[in-house]
Structures are given as C-alpha cells and as structure tokens.
Amino acid sequence: MSETREQLTRELMKLVAKEGMVEAGTISPEARLEDLSIQSADFIMILMAIEEKYGAYISVDNDLTETETVQDLLDLAIAKIEEQRAA
C-alpha cells in the first residue's frame, strides 16, 4: 500500500511539473505553489490531467484554496484518487 502511495506520489509530482510547466528538477514536496508560479489556469490543467489519468474529479473549490505547497496538492489528489478507487 505504502509502495503504491509512493509510486503515486512520484507520478503526481511528474504530472504537476508537466502540466504546471515547471522544471522537474525545481519541484519538491515542500515547494510553495506560488513560488513555482503555478496559477489558477495551471491548476485547471493539472486537475484535468488527474481526471484523465486517475478518474478523480476535483473541483476548484474549498479544498484547493487551502493548498499552499506541492505536498498539499499531492495529499488532496491522493485522497481523491483513493476515494475514487474505493467507490
């Protein structure tokens, strides 16, 4: 389970970097999204990619407004993906 989660985290990091148009080398879990210049339009692209790849729908709302770091975004995405897988 934890291995799956680690793998998922790695995949999601890559996805966030690609869709957020950030150099893969500069992205880390602690990095603040703002510092990476990931903005609302990038969020939409990231969320679309998550939906395509994992089938999880995340609306641009409460949960997302509280995400400050890459880790926050990963936690949210993983929670929604796991929710989707359990459904």
Binding site: I44, M48, Y57, I58, S59, V60, D61, N62, D63
Partner: peptide, 21 residues
C-alpha cells in the same frame, strides 16, 4: 463546464463552509 471544475459533483451549497461548486 466540468473541465472548468466549478461545478459540484454533490449539492450546491452557497455561502456554506462545505460548498464545492
């Protein structure tokens, strides 16, 4: 509209803490 991700997959709850679209 789905792609813009401003629609709720649940209930529409304006001004409520648990709103999500």
């Amino acid at each position: 509209w789905e792609l813009l991700r401003v629609m709720t997959a649940d209930l529409n709850r304006p001004f409520s803490r648990d709103r999500n679209g």
